[in-house]
Amino acid sequence: MRHGKYRFLIGALAPPLLLYGVFVVSPYAQAFYLALTDWDGLSAEARLVGLANFTDLWGDPLFLAALRNNAFLLLAVPTATIALALFFAACLTLGGRRRRGVRGSGLYRIVYFFPQLLSVAILGVLFQFVYTPGNGLLNGLLDAVGLDALQRSWLADPATALPAVTAVMVWSAVGFYVVLFTAAMESVPADIVEAAVLDGAGNLTVFRRITLPLVWDSVQVAYVYLGILALDGFALVQIMTVGPGGPDNATEVIGLTLYRAAFTYGEFGYASAMGVTLFFITLTLTALALRATKRERVELA
């Protein structure tokens, strides 16, 4: 019977592993190889150029601008998203007089999820209208509340373009993490919270001392996912920004630089080198984030 079991296991595992190998592992392996060549994407031949592509990267002002902007996104997007999502999730689960959430929390939970249902392309186009200079939604709103001094061409000003894109990323991501954190918070046993409250803990203390430690695993996962999201940003930048990537490279991201190098300049080798660099950056940051946020695991009885 034992043999039969292994045969079954191997039979069941082989097809997915094969698919994974062909469609995930082999392209990655190929990208690593291409990063060492000067392949132009069309010719049959590619010359090995060693690490020249990687050394060129550090003298490429466009790539460096992209790195800088991705670093900004990496700081801003996860922090803002997690903070907002935790706040909203806490309101939904802990708020209200009887700690069952603020009134209408069921409805909010659904509404928060809406942005998640929109594709990035639609988001980009919608927010383009929000940021339209002159009579756009945002400028109109500022005008209506008497803050017309703040009106500007949001996406055409190097100072506000990247924050404007960041805001869209946060807006679109926050709903999903509200749902994730709400689910995690609801699994916190009510008696622990009750005991804390009986001991005289206020809402803030309950959140800080009880809820947050118990949902920390979810926060950690959220941080990694949002970090990956922040290292990308390609689609939004491509659709929304001036240029795209402008003004004056203010919204250039690695994905865009890579795409342009490959499909506009025909420098597939160089683009692969960027991809490989991004791969290692993502890997390193994920490992760092998991390590930095590591805490003692709390076991619930």
Binding site: F23, V24, P27, Y28, Q30, L42, G255, Y259, F268
Partner: peptide
């Protein structure tokens, strides 16, 4: 989460271009 698809499809495109 669009980080994965975009990078993956880029790599896929480069595989096809390789072919």
């Amino acid at each position: 989460m669009y980080a994965h698809p975009s990078r993956r499809s880029l790599l896929r495109a480069s595989t096809m271009a390789g072919a």
